[in-house]
């Protein structure tokens, strides 16, 4: 639409954000401050991710937006519409088709490829925040690589639950240097962070931080020797497509306690069903 600049943000703002992105890519896992702009949507809606997407989009891009793995939630739909309206880009739900994917809470099951950009919406970028509220101190801890506190959190988990109960936003170490919050993705997705051929960008709007993983960055999930990291998921196969290695949502199907497990990645599941794969409840659901 003509009253907007391409992808809503003015060129100067996009340049500022791109400079922050380049810096973030140069120092993997390091949180780069940026002057976050007001976007025409509330902070909880991923304004950090939206600004990254706006700064990266070109007219030739094909955009996919997912929320918890699904393309059709209110949040995903409105962000997708926003860029259709302000950038006129092609949109898609197919992971393999997309050149830029903005996501909240998931990494697609289909392996990403070289040339793709994955943009994460981040609520709280600072992994040390929960135990150390002082920003000056957390910055110092990153600078001096004082990361003992991260293990204090994992220790508490085990002491209280008998195992590391952290299942989302599971902290990682990037290239043996910076400890990073991968945003609230399930820890099942953590292994996909490492050595990905795609560019991964993380944006926190309210907290005004951008960080990044350039292609093929080594990312390790923190753990203890006697409590090693495990990328867990529900111990089921998808009831629709039969996939046994995808992240599942549990869905209540009736009032009588009926439930089913389905892929949280709707594009992945739909494509498998279309290819003829069948899960336990495939016939009923069809």
């Amino acid at each position: 639409m003509s009253e907007y600049n391409f992808a809503y943000l003015d060129e100067q703002t996009k340049r500022m954000i791109r400079r922050a992105i380049l810096k973030a890519l140069a120092i993997p896992g390091y949180q780069v401050p940026f002057a976050s702009r007001e976007m025409p949507m509330p902070y909880g809606w991923g304004t950090g991710g939206v600004q990254l997407t706006a700064a990266c989009l070109t007219p030739d891009d094909r955009l996919k937006v997912i929320d918890q793995g699904a393309d059709d939630t209110t949040n995903a739909v409105s962000i997708r519409k926003f860029f259709q309206r302000t950038a006129g880009v092609t949109v898609t739900t197919a992971t393999t088709d997309a050149t830029l994917i903005q996501t909240r809470h998931r990494i697609p099951e289909t392996p990403l490829t070289q040339g793709q950009i994955l943009v994460y919406q981040v609520p709280i970028p600072e992994p040390l925040r929960f135990l150390e509220p002082r920003e000056t101190e957390t910055r110092k801890m990153h600078e001096l690589e004082e990361y003992g506190l991260m293990h204090v959190k994992l220790y508490e988990d085990i002491a209280r639950h008998g195992q590391i109960a952290t299942s989302y936003a599971y902290p990682v170490k990037v290239e043996g240097r910076y400890v990073m919050d991968p945003s609230p993705i399930p820890k099942f997705d953590n292994p996909k962070l490492s050595d990905s051929p795609a560019i991964q960008l993380f944006g926190a709007g309210r907290e005004q931080r951008i960080y990044a993983l350039p292609p093929h960055t080594h990312v390790v999930s923190l753990d203890f020797d006697d409590h090693p990291f495990r990328a867990t998921k529900a111990d089921h196969a998808c009831d629709l497509c039969g996939a046994d290695a995808s992240y599942l949502d549990e869905v209540v199907t009736d009032d009588a306690g009926g439930r089913m497990f389905v892929c949280s990645d709707t594009d992945f599941c739909t494509a498998r069903v279309a290819a003829g794969h069948k899960g336990r409840l495939a016939a009923e659901a069809a």
């Binding site: 004082e146 003992g148 506190l149 293990h151 204090v152 220790y155 508490e156 085990i158 002491a159 753990d223 203890f224 020797d225 006697d226 409590h227």
Partner: peptide, 17 residues
């Protein structure tokens, strides 16, 4: 326990037990 263990973890101990 975490209060006492913090310094150990800060110097790199990684065995919970």
């Amino acid at each position: 326990g975490a209060n006492v263990g913090e310094r150990l973890m800060a110097v790199g101990q990684r065995h919970y037990g």
